[in-house]
Amino acid sequence: MAPIEARPPRPRGRGGYWPYLIPSALLFLAVIVVPFLMNVATSFTRWSGVGTPTWIGLDNYTKLLRDERFWTSFEHNVALIVAMAVVPTMAGLVLAAALFDYIGRRFGARTASALRAAYYLPQVLPVAIAGVVWGWMLHPSYGAVNEIFGLKVNWLGDPDYALATVMAVMVWFQLGYPVVIFMAGLQRADPALHEAAEIDGASWWRRFWHVTIPQIRPEIYVVLLTCTIAALKVFGPIFVLTRGGPGNATMVPSYFSYLNFFEKVNVGYGSAIATVLALIIVVVTFLFLRVQEREP
């Protein structure tokens, strides 16, 4: 450390790098910090968006705890975490391993990467456009899915099917992301271990479980974390496909807060929902990072 410091390591002086942070600091303050604090402050008020907000303390939060729509919306968030994080991660692991060390070896790398591209293609769409595509395919009167299978199901309009349908659409949308990340991870991993296990006669499944998965554990964490956050934030597909309906069948917190902000003009209540959502996301991120750190 000392010898490096003794030489003139960087151009002139110390601490003089702070000015480079000023433009971002100002913008960050104006676009993130101040609005977020305003949002928290608004959550303690009753406000319609015009006039002066009325301070009501924790009333919005106590109301929130008793609001069935709020709890339902978080239950749906859990369902979407299953659809957007858990299922794609598990399926992605199997697919990535199958493509990497089965298809890649027996049918060539080109076959593997062509299949990977096919799985990944939905991911390149804006998520709202993915919703439009499926909204069209699942339309009750002219949708292609009903036409092809000769069904008359109102996929998105029937409360019994709506959430499951949205979940299926999100699995389709999300699947390619873990496949790509895991395949990149497998390329980084050491092939010698895998070969040793194969020579020892370990079955494909045992090699997958005891060799492949431990090797790409960092990638699994990253995928689970980013997909869980995405599922907690999900808005576009709900807006396009169902608007939270029918009834509350697909209501999620982000759409619930949007509804309170702009349609019911219950800005204070909407802010409380958004604050809780932000809190949950920060806590989830923190927990993931802690668990990841503890891993050997």
Partner: peptide
């Protein structure tokens, strides 16, 4: 800041 949901910034913005 990057992780915060946009919902928690939307109305003040």
């Amino acid at each position: 800041g990057n992780t915060l949901p946009q919902e928690a910034l939307a109305y003040p913005l």
